[in-house]
Amino acid sequence: MIYRQNQNLCPNRYTMPYEVRPGDTLNSIAARFGTNLVGLIELNPTLRLRTLTEGMSICVPRVPERPSCVNGAYYTIVEGDSFYSIALRYRIPLNLLLEANPEANPYDLKVGQEICIPNVPAGCPFGTVVQIQEGTRLSDILISYNVSLNELREANAEFNPNIIVPGTDLCIPPENYMECDPENAREYVIKPGDSLSTVAMSYNMSPSALLIANPNLRPANFLISGTRVCIPNA
């Protein structure tokens, strides 16, 4: 891909110049840079009156580059994200998030684009580090922090759910709900008034055993009507 170095062509810092190549069309260029024909024409109003020709320089959306992220962690944009919602989610001031991503266009975040979340705990991106106390059980951890067993394992590679060691630091990951797969188990649908403990008691199981049988569910899911729960076959 060839870019002409005449930066004055595209003074907007969220755009950059592009030199038209053989075979290019307005639609193909728009698709390549994540916009549409209308957006491309808005950046290049004179294209309404000119024919696209090889070697012509036009303005296109700047390709987002991965920012430097010292003492932070990278986050990948998903559908519906905005800087405001991300700042709220990770409880950081909006201005700090903007300062950490000076090249990102806050009005045009791209799905798949990487941004930097500043001041994230080392080894526990976007989560919270807690220390296991004496007498703590697996169910205590999962219930207290509303986290599933699979999420806890993924965030703590050395964690053994069968051996809870007091004094161990654990990374509690951010919320990420997933449904369980009812294969090889009876399916139970949570009703109003249900909870982890009442469902476990109904099937003569401990809360920990029920959470282990549903590693993608969090304790709070057992309070949400309509949640599918896997009850292991006897």
Rank of each mutant, 00 (worst) to 15 (best):
Tyr75Asp: 08
Tyr75Lys: 10
Gly80Glu: 11
Asp81Met: 01
Asp81Trp: 00
Phe83Pro: 11
Phe83Ser: 06
Tyr84Asp: 14
Ser85Cys: 03
Ser85Gln: 13
Ile86Tyr: 02
Ile92Thr: 15
Ile92Pro: 02
Leu94Trp: 01
Asn95Ser: 13
Leu96His: 13
Leu97Thr: 05
Ala100Asn: 10
Ala100Asp: 10
Glu103Trp: 00
Asn105Tyr: 07
Asn105Glu: 08
Pro106His: 02
Asp108Met: 11
Leu109Asn: 02
Leu109Met: 11
Leu109Gln: 01
Gly112Cys: 06
Gln113Lys: 05
Glu114His: 10
Ile115Ala: 00
Ile117Gln: 09
Pro118Arg: 03
Pro121His: 07
Pro121Phe: 09
Cys124Trp: 08
Phe126Thr: 02
Gly127Lys: 03
Gly127Phe: 02
Gly127Pro: 01
Thr128Ala: 10
Thr128Met: 10
Val129Gly: 02
Gln131Met: 15
Glu134Trp: 08
Glu134Tyr: 12
Gly135Gln: 13
Arg137Glu: 13
Leu138Arg: 05
Ile141Met: 00
Ile141Val: 05
Leu142Ser: 03
Ile143Phe: 08
Tyr145Glu: 07
Tyr145Leu: 05
Val147Met: 08
Val147Cys: 08
Ser148Lys: 06
Leu149Tyr: 11
Glu151Thr: 06
Arg153Ile: 10
Glu154Val: 12
Glu154Gln: 13
Ala155Asn: 04
Ala155Met: 07
Ala157Glu: 12
Glu158Arg: 14
Glu158Trp: 13
Asn160Ser: 06
Val165Leu: 14
Pro166Val: 05
Leu170Met: 06
Ile172Arg: 04
Pro174Leu: 03
Glu175Lys: 15
Tyr177Trp: 15
